[in-house]
Design a protein around this nucleic acid. Sequence first.
DNA 1: CTTACGATCATCT
DNA 2: GATGATCGTAAGC
Length: 195
Amino acid sequence: MKDIRLLSRDFYSRDTVRVAKNLLGKRLVRVRGRTRMAGRIVEAEAYRGSDDPASHAYRGKTPRNTPMFGEPGHAYIYFTYGNHYCLNITTQRSGIAGAVLIRALQPLEGIRTMKRLRSLVPESELTNGPGKLTKALGIDKSLNEVDMTKWGPLFVEDTEYDGFEIARSSRIGIKEGLDRKWRFYVVGSKCVSRR
DNA sequence: CTTACGATCATCT
DNA sequence: GATGATCGTAAGC
């Protein structure tokens, strides 16, 4: 049986921008009841703390952003626009704010279930946006603060997958901090939210 | 192809 | 009371 490892606490405890880039190509896994779904991370954005005006943590700790200040490697999930959940993974050592927003996946496993949860949209549009992927994988606030370095409902495998080209750009949907190129995506992937 | 807007609510001012 | 780390639909070109 193949020895599958998960990304470690140390992986997430580093600088947020580096973690965002290094998460590309890794395999995000969602275990939901008896169903297992998985996708390759093809787009991610870094959000830091008091030095990042686009971040929820810019003005300090609040009830919502508390996970960003906590132990690295946990889920930070928030509800926005009255409709959507967004999934982040916390970074930096405890006490330092940071999180990586998972913006898009390439579906790999459990695609039938994803289609059911997303009303049968085409495969290339199942998970090509932060709100879309949480709906496709059945992720909501009940998973907020889950430890993603342990096997459970949500985790990331340390997959051996490379040979792809990475590009960077400004982050999407924000008004400040546009000078920082903290969005990373896989060049040529049909599953990223924008080219 | 592009732009515009409503949904709908937690959070912050 | 306004806004938003979004999305789907509708309408315009």
